[in-house]
Write a protein that binds this DNA or RNA. Structure first.
Lengths: 105, 105
DNA sequence: ATCGAAGTTTGACAGCAATCGTACTTGTGG
DNA sequence: CCACAAGTACGATTGCTGTCAAACTTCGAT
């Protein structure tokens, strides 16, 4: 278990990876919850309909796509939305997907 | 072969379906080509790396998600991007994905 | 009326990705 | 030092989806 897992740089962001990450409802729910509250949150604080091991998988996919940044605080792994990085790489994308309008549908 | 295949109304658009449609590179390529030229195009005029039957499948997925409108002209099936409908349902989404910036990545 | 062009339909297949349980690691608090 | 909490890693399973070939339909042109 690495202390600091690898995060892609903005210049390495890949739209295909980002969309593959966002197409899963569980992962989009994570992103939405991060976007709404605007605060970093530990994995366990999310309301997810899957097991812990599956949740770990989803967080990994989001991290590798560049959507979230992860760091440890004790045994908790905190998750932060990389909002500015995403806005720089793909302007408007996060906004389009975290709008109440879009979330409700 | 129905003359006019079913198209969803804007009020029935579903973000999950739209994202599932857009996550496939072939289908996103179709949408991009439609967005760039801005004109309706027959299925056969697209540059796609798949067989005809696979292409048919992709156009069907795009149509059922509400991304394109299809109509016959002779034996050709024309495809039109439902830009205004999409913009109404999910503002900014198509723009974010058809930007040269996004397309290039 | 025939032939070809343009798509569609169907069935089969292959690969991937989401899921879970179990076992494991690593900190924190008593 | 020990137990528990928070995640991670791994292997197995399962269902979905993209793919194709082959046969078929429809329309237009000759």
């Amino acid at each position: 278990m690495e202390r600091t897992p690898p995060h892609p740089e903005v210049s390495a962001f890949d739209l295909q990876l980002v969309l593959e990450a966002l197409v899963d409802p569980v992962r989009r729910s994570i992103v939405t919850q991060l976007a709404v509250t605007g605060e970093d949150r530990a994995c366990g604080t999310f309301d997810l309909p899957v097991s812990k091991s599956t949740a770990t998988h989803h967080f990994k996919v989001l991290r590798e796509a560049g959507l979230i940044r992860q760091y440890y605080v004790g045994t908790s792994r905190m998750n932060a939305l990389r909002r500015t990085d995403m806005d720089q790489a793909f302007p408007g994308l996060l906004d389009a997907l975290t709008t109440p309008r879009a979330v409700a549908r």
